[in-house]
Simulated assay, not measured.
Amino acid sequence: MFVLVNLKAYPADPVSVAEAAATVDGTAGVDVAVAPQAADIARVAQTGAETWAQHVSPVSHGSHTGSTLAESVAANGAVGTLINHSERRLTLADIDDSIAAADRAGLETVVCANTPEQIAAVAALGPDAVAVEPPELIGTGTPVSQADPEIVEDAVTAAEAVDPAVDVYCGAGISTGEDLVAAEELGADGVLLASGVAKADDPQTALEDLVGQY
């Protein structure tokens, strides 16, 4: 089971969270990675935690002020990137170009989408994984696996019909080991979570509880 902790722009200490993730990684068969702000990627990677970017721009080297260059996040230690998170939406063409940019830089890719229909569309672009995230559940503490289990099952079916090699994750409201079990039972290969760890008073305890209940 894969767990990607998205720190978003929360006032979390990215190094502390990364150190906790590195400690918990591999426990109970759960692989834990962290997606910090782009400016924090290098120091997060230095902790030994698996480090992901929150976004890469659909561009290559050139005149693209303000863009997040895939080659740059890779050079600073990221091994993968989220694309098209609900809080950083892209057009389908830009998703395709961001995947291409990530591929050039050797980054793994997880493309987020809201519905099984969107999951099918982005799975056709050839990412390593897709993640279904109903935006109305993000940050609510109500896991998608409980609020709308059918959307996870339908997302798994949709991705498999397009490309069985594409993994399927689920996000929105994930915070406990029970949520991990539920996601796995619905066919997901991993989860995305954020506030349950990033906003925790003790991120390591939160991660240990997460894995300990799995």
Rank of each mutant, 00 (worst) to 15 (best):
L4M: 13
V5R: 00
Y10R: 01
Y10S: 00
P11E: 09
P14K: 02
S16I: 04
A20K: 01
A22I: 03
G26H: 02
A28C: 02
G29D: 09
G29N: 09
D31L: 07
V32C: 12
A33R: 13
V34D: 07
V34A: 05
A35S: 13
P36D: 06
A38Y: 07
A39N: 02
D40G: 06
I41L: 04
R43N: 03
Q46H: 05
G48F: 01
E50Q: 14
W52Q: 03
Q54Y: 02
V56N: 00
V56H: 00
S57Y: 01
S57D: 13
P58H: 02
P58C: 01
H61C: 05
S67H: 14
T68K: 01
T68H: 07
S72F: 04
A75G: 14
A75P: 08
N76F: 05
A78V: 02
G80D: 01
L82D: 01
H85T: 13
E87G: 08
R88Y: 05
R89D: 06
L90I: 03
T91Q: 07
I95R: 04
D96M: 00
G106Q: 12
E108F: 07
T109M: 00
A113T: 10
T115W: 10
E117M: 12
E117I: 13
Q118A: 15
A120W: 02
A124G: 11
G126N: 08
D128W: 07
A129H: 11
L137Y: 05
L137N: 11
T140V: 12
P143T: 10
Q146L: 15
A147T: 08
D154Y: 07
V156N: 07
V162W: 10
A172Y: 10
G173H: 10
I174A: 10
S175N: 11
G177E: 12
A182L: 12
E185V: 03
S195W: 08
G196V: 09
V197S: 09
K199A: 14
A200Q: 11
A200R: 11
D201P: 15
P203M: 11
T205E: 13
A206Y: 09
V211W: 00
